[in-house]
Design a binder for these strands. Structure first.
Lengths: 236, 236
DNA sequence: AAGTTAGGTGTACGCCGTACACTTGTCAAG
DNA sequence: CTTGACAAGTGTACGGCGTACACCTAACTT
């Protein structure tokens, strides 16, 4: 039967192979290099062939997101809600760090697929199981926002690899820093406390994982406090 | 002199007119409609003419962001840090709501212009002036993240206007809801507490302003607590 | 009067997503 | 064994995009 033949014919495409290739390409070459044409080329096929397996590029991206979600650990049972949520978020973060394209793609998605909704549903479930009211759970989910996916809008994000500084001569960096300190004294004050080397004022010098966990724990602690004191909305 | 002539010659372009037209176009037709060609057409000029006033599209977007930032109220003096920050964030939010294109554009910007840095600097200044250590200010800025700009990654955001429901017959909505309740029981539980009408499970039914302020205040309260107890990093 | 230059033009290139009509290889039914 | 259907891959083409580059022209400087 058809199914059998398809599997034996080596070169045959299918939705899974297309998605896997798309993920691989985005991982290796960056999301901006992922075009239908380039992807087809990578698969040794003509661009239009892809459309037999995904409806359009949007759906391709949806599929990629779903693949990424599949890498996030399911909620660990047993622990209290706070740790359960915490671990899940950090697991999501790991998946996201493996697939840097996922952040912009996730942000751009406007229609949630069932898989995405399922992920969000399981999140809501963790709060409800922890004794949160439905109302509080709702607000708390909003407050968590994209941190649910393990990412934050980065304040200072490096354009890419970040080996740029090596090229710029050190004295020029120092001059730039002095100029910046004049124009942006507060940022400079912050930067000097964390970055030990004067050159890397922006971009490097931030321990992203620390910042992420700092904010996450701040929120979780806030949630806990509200839940404990039996928060209810005084909102219409 | 040149300057004088330019002002008298009505049709002449300049960077300001280009940026203003770009903002107007993005406001009216959506950011996805803002192309160099379309913008040029709007200005009654050939596409390449724009490149005499902005280096490329990236710089155009940077300029638009700067224009938007210009609409944010400067920090009000006199109040305590918390209220100062709060009001400024809410002012930013107002500007952002007037220009829906600004969120995606801001997110996509990788190199911060001086104006953007200046805005961030003034934010850091509010915390420092409130007695925060440089270190805590740093982390707090990260935790605030994009909320500094008055936006959050929306959990359930409607694709557009949102008058879709009017088209879908009510009984079909109810059926969809029942199916969703089965598949995503936790989301359904949340949705029913807030949305009084069963149909609008996703997208509508959330008071975005409330959600925003809820999360903002949660964070600000957390910041206050840390600052008061003289938080210092036990981080390498 | 001559030369410089800023600002607007026209053409063209290489990308993009994808509509649509086509071939082809595989199978089930007659 | 033929036939006809159908799924999968192809080829061509269209309208969009950002923008490089050569050009024209009107204004200002000297």
């Amino acid at each position: 039967m058809t199914q059998q033949r398809e599997e034996t014919r080596r070169a045959s495409l299918n939705r899974g192979r297309v998605l896997a290739a798309a993920v691989a390409l985005a991982d290796d070459a960056g999301i901006e290099s992922l075009s239908m044409r380039r992807l087809a080329q990578e698969l040794g096929v003509v661009p239009m062939a892809l459309y037999k397996h995904v409806a359009n590029k949007e759906e391709l991206l949806d599929g990629m997101v779903e693949a990424m979600i599949g890498e996030i650990d399911p909620p660990a049972g047993g622990a209290d809600w706070k740790n359960t949520v915490r671990l899940r978020v950090l697991s999501a973060r790991q998946a996201l760090l493996r697939h840097p394209w996922a952040r912009p793609v996730l942000e751009s998605r406007t229609n949630k697929t069932p898989t995405v909704l399922g992920y969000m549903d399981s999140f809501a479930g963790m709060f409800l199981a922890g004794g949160f009211s439905a109302d509080l759970t709702h607000h708390v989910m909003h407050a968590l926002g994209s941190r649910m996916w393990g990412f934050t809008q980065e304040l200072f994000d490096s354009p890419d690899g970040g080996t740029v500084e090596a090229v710029v001569p050190a004295e020029a960096q120092a001059a730039m820093f002095r100029q910046m300190a004049e124009q942006f004294p507060n940022i400079a004050a912050i930067a000097t406390t964390t970055a030990h080397d004067e050159g890397s004022v922006v971009g490097t010098g931030c321990d992203d994982q620390f910042e992420f966990e700092f904010a996450l724990d701040l929120l979780l602690d806030g949630f806990e406090r509200l839940s404990r004191q039996g928060w209810t909305s005084n909102h219409a």
